[in-house]
Amino acid sequence: MATQDIVLDTQEHTSTGVDNVKLAMWAFLGSECLFFASLISTYLLYRNDVLSGPTPSEIYDIPFTSVSSFVLLMSSLTMVLALGAIHRKDERQMRVWLLATAVLGMVFIGGQIYEFTTFVEEGMKLDTSTFSSAFFVLTGFHGAHVTVGILLLLTLVMMSLFGRLSPGAERKVEMIGLYWHFVDIVWVVIFTVVYLIPTNG
């Protein structure tokens, strides 16, 4: 809830001239880079170790994942349009775009749930191989981040409906937007490194 914490005395003037909350958010995102880098590196180490389970190229459904990747990418557009709306003080339109973003996020998560279910049916569970462990934990943590983002977006919409978004509405939307875009670019990397780059198998 870093985005909600406001300290007195600091908003008018900070030593660097940048906003406290925004600085904190970027520091947090810098930290998250290491988080996902650890998970992705684990995946890269293990992606060929499939034992008797399915290999990546056998199990991935590239057309399906391409569509859900596209959906997530476009949710970044709706997010940034929501920010544009609140810059124009148009809270109604902002709510529309925020809801659109949340819905696109839910479509993505729905796709991930479908994907996981299919994989389990095809015989790839968390404990099937080191590849499956690395895959599920990496994409699962990404999905958890998207889910948190959806909750934050819906909270913003509710706050706006109850008239509690202002003051500081622009900043709240901007901070959650930064988080959302970050989660999106992590998926840009995952889509390429996990799904598209071929393995030995």
């Binding site: 180490l45 968390l126 080191t130 462990s133 934990v137």
Partner: peptide
Amino acid sequence: FQLMFDRVWGANFFDATVGGD
């Protein structure tokens, strides 16, 4: 987290018998 998944849910991150390292 990887240790947790290994211990609680049977993931294979560090289990050398199935290729974990």
